[in-house]
């Protein structure tokens, strides 16, 4: 009965093949489902630790003497200025306006009378001192020379 045995073997082979294929299908399916539910499992934990910089510590970071978030010079009174002067308006307004103490005090008074600025108490002196020290008035005469010329060859 060689034919019958051969036939049985063939059946067994087919059964095993079907079983293997089915198992593969289950494993693959399982993996896909698992990946969908919890994809981070397949990422290496190493890369995670590399990018996981605590952002909170960066907020008031100083580089080359500059407070990065506001662009202000790191000097005595910096954080008093940051906390009192950059809530409503940009620090760019401070850097642009080069005034003496008298005019800064007058400006603060104006902001308190019309712009909802709070009473600065002892901090006012710290703030004004910071501004006139780090951003002092400049004497430009009646007309300054043309500045910041970027020379280029004009092709016509």
């Amino acid at each position: 009965m060689p034919k019958e045995e051969d036939y049985k073997k063939l059946i067994n082979k087919v059964t095993r093949l079907v079983f293997v294929l089915f198992s593969l299908f289950l494993i693959t399916g399982g993996l896909i489902v698992y990946y969908t539910v919890n994809p981070s499992y397949f990422h290496s934990t190493e890369s995670k630790t590399i990018v996981n910089i605590p952002l909170e510590e960066d907020e008031d970071r100083i580089e080359n003497g500059i407070h990065i978030r506001t662009g202000l010079i790191n000097n005595e009174g910096l954080m008093t200025v940051v906390n009192n002067c950059t809530n409503c308006h940009s620090s760019k307004l401070l850097v642009q306006n080069r005034m003496n103490a008298e005019r800064w005090n007058a400006t603060i008074k104006w902001m308190q009378e019309t712009q909802n600025l709070w009473d600065l108490g002892k901090n006012q002196k710290v703030i004004v001192n910071y501004l006139v020290t780090n951003y002092p008035p400049r004497d430009m005469g009646r007309r300054a020379p043309i500045e910041n010329i970027n020379w280029y060859y004009l092709k016509e």
Partner: peptide, 8 residues
């Protein structure tokens, strides 16, 4: 000059 207040 002297600096006038506001956006420059």
């Amino acid at each position: 000059n002297p600096t006038a207040k506001g956006n420059q």
